[in-house]
Write a protein that binds this DNA or RNA. Structure first.
Lengths: 128, 128
DNA sequence: CCCATCTTACGAAAACCTTCGTAATAGTCT
DNA sequence: AGACTATTACGAAGGTTTTCGTAAGATGGG
């Protein structure tokens, strides 16, 4: 029984986002990316990554001098978990209410709307 | 300038969920509802509600012996904030990715699907 | 009035999160 | 080797969140 890695905190989630986007990266690379959005100190990122390594959230490759970190949590599963959490906590378990809230709050391009429609078709298809 | 009430923490959000659902409630009522999902002590809920009162997240009615608490944060606005936060933090700002993840993770009834379709129609209508 | 019960008030502990300063270490260049 | 730079390691501060124990006050029955 290997125990599940714990859920990422907000700051950890932002780092995971960078790793999912860029792939395995050094502290410097992550810090520079993060720093563009919000001033973020180098050692802060380093410390977070060390903690995340302990927690089993990221994997560390030590072969180069500047260690390279990679997300260990799969993007899909983590996103599911986050969505599920929010649905349960703020939307009384109703995913569709979250969906509608998201759609009426944030813009979606025509392209995205089309893809959502396709997904809805699939869902309805399965029901019969 | 009255300052904005801060965002609710996870535990606070769960209490808000109950208040949105049941309307103004006593500690006992909230605790019993919460306790069904996750064991939750009475004084824990009470303390949370006292803190939330200080923060301006709930309103307290003292007229009865058992005080009655009511959500002060509007459901809609809070849900928007939570969704926006999650979209930014875990979905790189793409609401549609969150939507698709939610739909493929959690079940939606045919009825709900239909209502989502209507909303998509509206969105497309506005674009032209 | 007295007792049992319910409620609020308060403090404090324990865990967790985020940030940063400082020191040690490894590598590079001359 | 010596000086310089980049990186890792470590600890600790400061804040927040969550939980709970205990005390004090109110209520109602007998």
């Amino acid at each position: 029984m290997t125990k599940e890695p714990p859920r990422p905190t907000p700051a950890e989630l932002e780092i995971l986002g960078v790793l999912w986007e860029l792939g395995p990266s050094t502290v410097r690379e992550i810090q520079e990316d993060l720093d563009r959005r919000r001033p973020t100190g180098y050692t802060t990122v380093l410390k977070l990554l060390q903690i995340m390594t302990d927690k089993g959230i990221v994997r560390r490759d030590v072969r180069e001098r500047a260690h390279r970190y990679a997300a260990k949590l799969p993007r899909e599963k983590t996103e599911q978990q986050m969505v599920g959490d929010l649905v349960d906590r703020a939307f009384g378990g109703s995913a569709s209410r979250l969906v509608m809230r998201a759609l009426s709050t944030r813009p979606a391009t025509a392209d995205e709307v089309a893809r959502i429609r396709e997904l809805l078709d699939e869902i309805e298809g399965e029901k019969e």
